[in-house]
């Protein structure tokens, strides 16, 4: 078979696996959010199981990528794409970890309800979900513009994080006996804030892949 055709076929297989990994990350984040809203603990278990699937996919994709680099010796755009795959999987895996953190928080809140609005926390997770989906689309479509637009949404997450921490600190002052819960909520909010940063990293990697230059998005 023509080696170029073979390379393109391998790349298509790789894209399918990245799509599967990214979709699972996004789904788990939605499940964790749903668990937070409904207290459905079955969803928490599904998110934890999903993390193992995500980790396995990361290893599979990175192995495939390493083999492609070794055997096909790609250059230029092809090489940038494969280098980007490592960044994409690395960031998706971390986002998956944050979905697990959110799910664990949902379980704790089911056991001990917070009693106040979690709207900002939920919106952070919601924004994170749509950012993951868009960043993945930008990667698969090699769309630098979409990547740049997506990274801008991190501002929304950052603003919600700041406001939510403020709310929880207010709660803490009023209920010092619930310091443990307040600390967990602040930690969860910080994880979601980091999630936004990971999607931003992913978007930067997409711009690098398409344009061949390193950019700092959403500084």
């Amino acid at each position: 078979m023509n080696t170029r055709i073979q390379f393109m076929e391998e790349l298509t297989r790789l894209h399918h696996d990245i799509l599967a990994m990214g979709t699972r990350v996004e789904e788990d984040l939605r499940r964790a959010l749903e668990a937070l809203r409904t207290g459905n603990l079955d969803l928490v278990q599904e998110v934890k199981a999903g993390d193992e699937v995500i980790n396995a996919l990361q290893i599979k994709i990175e192995d495939q990528t390493a083999v492609l680099i070794a055997t096909q010796q790609p250059v230029a755009r092809d090489l940038r794409e494969l280098v980007t795959v490592f960044k994409v999987t690395d960031n998706l895996e971390r986002i998956g970890d944050h979905a697990v953190h959110l799910a664990k928080t949902a379980r704790r809140l089911a056991e001990e309800p917070y009693g106040r609005s979690l709207e900002r926390l939920e919106r952070m997770a919601e924004t994170g979900c749509s950012m993951v989906r868009e960043a993945l689309t930008a990667f698969l479509n090699k769309d630098a513009l979409l990547a740049k637009d997506t990274a801008r949404k991190d501002d929304q997450i950052d603003a919600d994080h700041k406001a939510f921490v403020k709310e929880v600190l207010q709660f803490l002052m009023e209920h010092p006996d619930r310091a443990a819960q307040a600390t967990k909520l602040i930690a969860t909010s910080s994880f979601l804030e980091r999630l936004g940063d990971h999607v931003t990293n992913l978007c930067e990697a997409v711009v690098f892949m398409v344009e061949g230059r390193h950019v700092e998005l959403n500084e």
């Binding site: 080696t3 170029r4 390379f7 790609p74 250059v75 230029a76 755009r77 092809d78 090489l79 940038r80 061949g212 230059r213």
Partner: peptide, 17 residues
């Protein structure tokens, strides 16, 4: 030239197209 060629023809050649 091998990482970020400016000309599409270079890109196509070095990528084996």
């Amino acid at each position: 030239l091998f990482f970020n060629p400016k000309d599409e023809r270079t890109e196509n050649y070095i990528s084996g197209r």
